[in-house]
Design a protein around this nucleic acid. Structure first.
Lengths: 351, 351
DNA sequence: ATGAAAGCGCTAACAT
DNA sequence: ATGTTAGCGCTTTCAT
């Protein structure tokens, strides 16, 4: 199959029109009669014409490509978002190209930005954690939307989940199950979104008049391994918690492993609830109760915001926040009777 | 910062040379005096010149961009490989752009190939499982290298791990630990690489004169959840195995969960060994003994093969296979002494 | 509603 | 060793 790719010129010639007319027809622009347009489209499709996006871009216009920049491909957080963005973009007639580079690689980010702007109309930055990109992006003078777990510090348009509200959901779920001794396994101070989760935890406890000793708030780093160790310590406390809310799902997995190691059953002896709802949460055993980030919605909102910006309908540095959703599965249950509460009877509540 | 991107013309003008000379200097081509070249490079760097890859491509040449196509971004298999390919490519002065699209999206793959060839010199296809891409890629007439878990069915140059040998490593490790009742939790028939794993298991058992009953060979689908169920069945057998070799790490996680659910300790009562060595394997508790695929090496080999092809040094449809490596961690241990698995007799010993 | 000309930033091919 | 010319495939003018 050595057939060269057909070009606009081929389409135009075959349709007996000028390239301009063919171009207009293909792009659905005005200025083409109904029947000319149909004819052009038919021919283009017949000969398998695919517009050359690089030429399109070079010639000064847009090319319908969204660049995604992300330093971390290995977290489900990014994967989900990229897949979602791809779907949303394609639904809008665009394509998505991903550029990824681990943070430790010492490549000048400046160059990367230059590269990205060459082949795309704008960029979606997926930044699970603080990143050097932010500043560069801010002064890069090209359409950009950030998907992150951060707060409002940057002036870039961004979408994120309501971390505070999600934490509240998680803690209230535990409280309804009768838990009063609820621990928080954190994810470090550096990520604002994670701090929000902790604030949500604290405030919800207070609101319900529940104690929150310093002992029950332990620091993790979002990794399963660290969570295992830290949770183990938690369980050796003279007054151990009956439920643990972890900063993310990975940490929840670690906490569950720790519980088991300590001879505890989940959820009978101790409940664990995570945050994110990565695909593995459902597969895990026991299936993890968690707070879901609506990845698909976030991605699609980000894409649309970006596309609007590209089209010039930029609405400034708006920040969109999506509600989190509680997903009840099997890692949480009624508080053990040893120190029960009135709510212990109403346990059968499924999603 | 509304500064327009500097172009080759700017560099040339500032250096007082023609665009061609500037171009040659920047690309390290011959035909430029030492000092002219240095001057050009200095100026380019000064004004922050970044070559426009789309123009580069359009003008008929290569552009030093490698396209990666992968339908699955959500497996660590892909992530590892993409990161590795990026590193290798950049080391060779190239950039990598990822195009991803889930298989279920009904976008004509033909178009995608057209798109990819527009912005890249060649493509690396990361196909963890059978895929529609293969045929298209084969007749696409552009440089391509496949990284997969498959066998030799396709005529495309490809790199993969020695699945058979890896399985052998795994089983021999178990045998050395004294296990004789070794089960295999498979991953379906559709993926050739996975079938190789099973063959390796079978042959190794035979070679050591060990029994392999049909009962101990159970079908999975590479998912943790299925593995959990299937492994549970395995453990209820009248004569349960003392060790399980799973087709991949995810399945190992499921098997371990099943063992625990059945009141068994890993590795005291039962050993589990996976395949892949995804990052999570190390984080899991217990840390998973597994067979490592050398992702970084595979990626870098693939990149180099591809680059050679692009440069015209294509060595035909060569197939490169990398040795797998046994990584012993904590999920495997000596075979239990007693045939009983009541667990009551052998308490409290861990790791 | 349609077309012609010019040019985006670069590099092959041919000068010199 | 360096420069000139001619495009790559498209879209922007500015005609008609």
């Amino acid at each position: 199959m050595t057939k060269e790719n057909p070009t606009l010129e081929d389409v135009a010639r075959l349709a007996g029109v000028s390239q301009m007319t063919a171009s207009r027809a293909l792009n659905g622009r005005a200025g083409v009669s109904r029947e000319t347009r149909d004819e052009v489209l038919r021919i283009a499709s017949d000969i398998g014409y695919v517009v050359n996006r690089t030429a399109q871009k070079l010639s000064g216009g847009r090319n319908g490509i969204i660049g995604i920049i992300t330093p971390t491909l290995d977290t489900q957080f990014s994967s989900e978002l990229i897949l979602g963005a791809g779907r949303a973009a394609r639904a809008a007639g665009c394509e998505v190209l991903v550029y990824t580079m681990s943070d430790e690689e010492r490549r000048t980010h400046h160059d990367v930005l230059g590269l990205v702007r060459q082949f795309s109309d704008g960029v979606l930055a997926i930044l699970p954690r603080e990143s050097l990109w932010l500043d560069l992006l801010a002064k890069a003078n090209l359409p950009v939307v950030v998907i992150d777990q951060r707060g409002t510090m940057n002036r870039l348009p961004s979408v994120s989940v309501d971390n505070y509200g999600g934490a509240q959901l998680a803690v209230e779920h535990l409280i309804e199950l009768g838990h009063t001794r609820i621990a928080f396994l954190g994810g470090g101070e550096s990520i604002e979104g994670v701090r929000d989760r902790q604030r949500g935890y604290l405030d919800t406890l207070s609101r319900h008049g529940l104690p929150h000793t310093r002992e029950w708030i332990v620091p993790g780093d979002l990794s399963q391994m660290t969570a295992f160790e830290v949770a183990s310590g938690l369980l050796e406390l003279p007054e151990p918690p009956t439920a643990i809310f972890t900063a993310n799902d990975q940490s929840a997995f670690g906490a569950i492993a720790a519980a088991r190691e300590a001879g505890l059953r989940v959820p009978d002896d101790i409940s664990v609830i995570g945050f994110d709802d990565i695909p593995m949460a459902e597969q895990f055993h026991p299936a993890l109760t968690t707070v879901r980030q609506p990845f698909q919605q976030m991605a699609s909102s980000a894409v649309n915001t970006l596309l609007a910006q590209v089209a010039g309908h930029g609405a400034g540095a708006q920040r969109v926040t999506f509600a989190a959703e509680l997903v009840v599965r099997n890692s949480t249950g009624a508080a053990p009777v040893a120190r029960r509460r009135s709510g212990a009877s109403r346990q059968g509540r499924k999603r």
